[in-house]
Amino acid sequence: MNRRDDADLPWLAERERPGPVLRKGAGMTPLAWFDPRGRALGSFAFALNRITALGLVLYLYLHLGVLSLLLRGEDAWGDFLRLATTGAFLGLDVLLLFGLLFHGLNGIRVTLVGSGVVPERQRALFWAFTVVGVLALTAGAVRIVGGG
């Protein structure tokens, strides 16, 4: 139960002194997460993981919203299905699949690396999982677009 209080963080007090603190990102600090300048593979994976994650959260709620149409009976659902099987929509589905695959596979990689199982092999894992991901994405895209 020991929760750190600001009083226990002496470097925060140092921060109060005058003098600018350089940050990455363009203007807004959180953009530092997504600032690719001078950064390596790990930052790219992290940034994309975060973007896909937030995208997936958005989708989760969208999904719940869409499923509510089921409550309104067969007609509403049928209308939605017609919309959902148009070309543009299927493209979005492929995007969703990409997001899921990237986030999921990267998640497994981060789990393996981050729990100390293979702390040394993150790069190799990244590329191995990329291969798996590309294969799965291609297969999935063909099925989605090809009316599978």
């Binding site: 009976g73 067969e74 659902w77 299905l81 998640g107 497994i108 789990t111 981050g114 729990s115």
Partner: peptide, 24 residues
């Protein structure tokens, strides 16, 4: 991390079973 793993497994089951959910 643990949750993500569970979720993975669950997800896999779901995907397996889907096989063309379409109509109401």
């Amino acid at each position: 991390l643990v949750l993500a793993a569970i979720h993975m497994v669950a997800h896999h089951f779901v995907v397996e079973e889907v096989g063309g959910l379409r109509t109401y």
